[in-house]
Simulated scan of single mutants.
Amino acid sequence: MFDILTLLQSLLPEIKVTTMRQLSSFVMAMLVMSGRVTMLGISRWAGIGGSYRTVMRFFQTFILWGMIVLDE
């Protein structure tokens, strides 16, 4: 499971630190969730710093995915 977080670290040069921290927290929350994955569910499983408002802000963040290149 922590291999996913290692993979996400390669995105750090292109993504802001705050967005990266939120993404890591939300990915871990989605991995442990069962059933429907909703913003409310993510906020409940994300723990500290994962309020519903923070989830809303994250999903409104504009990320240029085409500019991100993963080194293999």
Rank of each mutant, 00 (worst) to 15 (best):
F58W: 03
T19A: 09
T18L: 04
R57I: 05
M28F: 09
I42Y: 05
G35P: 04
I42Q: 06
R44K: 11
Q9T: 07
F26I: 13
T61L: 00
T54R: 11
M67K: 15
V37G: 00
R36M: 02
V27R: 00
L31S: 10
L40R: 11
L70K: 00
E72Q: 11
T18M: 08
G50K: 14
L23C: 06
M33C: 08
M30H: 05
T38W: 05
P13N: 06
L40T: 04
Q60R: 11
S25G: 11
G66R: 09
T18V: 08
T18Q: 14
L8C: 06
M28L: 14
E14M: 00
I68E: 07
I48P: 05
T54C: 12
Q9F: 03
G49D: 06
D3P: 01
M56V: 12
W45C: 04
Q22Y: 13
M33V: 03
T54L: 11
Y52H: 14
I15R: 05
E14K: 00
T6I: 12
G66N: 12
Q60H: 13
S34F: 01
L23Q: 03
M39A: 09
T19Y: 04
G49Q: 07
P13Q: 06
S43V: 04
M33I: 09
V37D: 00
T61Q: 10
L31R: 15
M39G: 14
G41F: 03
F62D: 15
F58M: 10
M56A: 09
K16A: 08
D71W: 02
V27K: 00
M28D: 02
R53P: 00
S51K: 11
T6R: 07
G47A: 11
I48N: 10
T18G: 06
T18N: 13
S10V: 01
S25K: 15
G50Q: 12
F26E: 01
L7A: 15
L8H: 00
M20N: 08
E72Y: 10
R44A: 13
L7Y: 10
V69R: 15
F2L: 02
S51C: 07
F62C: 08
L70Q: 00
G41C: 02
V32R: 11
I68P: 08
R36W: 01
I15C: 04
V37Y: 01
Q60T: 10
M1Q: 06
S24V: 01
L8S: 02
M1C: 03
P13R: 05
M30K: 13
W45I: 00
I4H: 12
R57Y: 11
G41M: 02
G35K: 07
R44P: 01
M20G: 07
M1E: 01
V32D: 04
E72A: 12
S24C: 14
I63H: 04
L31V: 12
